[in-house]
C-alpha cells in the first residue's frame, strides 16, 4: 500500500503545539507557586524545571512537527484512508460501503484557528477513522463528499 497523500492544514502543528502546551504550562505555574512558597530543596526545584522544559520541548516542538510529517489522509470512492501518530503510528482504512455516520467536531482551539476534524464511524468501535486538523472548508467538502457517496443507512452495515 502506498501512503495517503493529503496533508492536514498548515496550522495543524500550531493547534497541536497549543494543546500540548496546556498541561505543561499548568505544571509550570504550580511550580512557580511552589518556588515562591518554599525555597528549600533546591535540587528538586532544578529537577522539576528541567522536566517541565523537556516536556515543553517534546510536546510543543518535536511532537507537532513529527506529527505534521506523518499525518496524511485520502478518500477514494471505495475507502477512507489515514495515517496518524508520531512515536506510535497507525494507518487505518475503512470501506465507504460500511460507513454509518460522518460528522465534524471542533474544539475551542480548532475554532480559534479555523480548523475542523472529520469522524467517520462504522459499526465497529475499533474501526472509526478520524481525519484531524483540516481547514474547516476542506473538512466540510470531505463530509459532503463522503455523505454523497456513502449512501448512509441503506443496510445495517455490520
Amino acid at each position: 500500500m502506498v501512503d495517503p497523500t493529503n496533508p492536514p492544514s498548515s496550522r495543524a502543528p500550531l493547534v497541536w503545539a497549543l494543546t500540548g502546551a496546556v498541561p505543561w504550562l499548568v505544571f509550570a505555574v504550580l511550580q512557580l507557586g511552589w518556588a515562591v512558597a518554599d525555597q528549600r530543596l533546591e535540587w528538586l526545584h532544578v529537577g522539576a524545571v528541567a522536566v517541565t522544559a523537556l516536556g515543553l520541548l517534546v510536546s510543543v516542538v518535536i511532537a507537532p512537527l513529527w506529527r505534521y510529517r506523518v499525518h496524511r489522509w485520502d478518500v477514494s470512492d471505495q475507502a477512507v484512508y489515514t495515517r496518524t501518530g508520531w512515536l506510535v503510528q497507525e494507518r487505518r482504512i475503512a470501506p465507504i460501503s460500511r460507513v454509518q455516520t460522518v460528522d465534524t467536531y471542533r474544539g475551542p482551539l480548532d475554532r480559534l484557528l479555523g480548523l475542523a476534524n472529520v469522524r467517520v464511524t462504522t459499526a465497529s468501535s475499533a474501526g472509526a477513522v478520524h481525519i484531524v486538523a483540516l481547514d474547516a472548508p476542506v473538512a466540510d467538502r470531505v463530509v459532503a463528499h463522503l455523505t454523497d457517496i456513502a449512501s448512509l443507512g441503506t443496510e445495517d452495515a455490520t
Partner: peptide, 22 residues
C-alpha cells in the same frame, strides 16, 4: 469493516507491525 496497521517506534525499527481487523 476496517483495518489498522499499528506500529510503535520499536516495531518500526524492528520492521514489524500489528495488524488490527475491526
Amino acid at each position: 469493516i476496517g483495518w489498522t496497521v499499528h506500529q510503535s517506534w520499536f516495531q518500526r525499527r524492528a520492521g514489524v507491525a500489528t495488524l488490527i481487523a475491526a
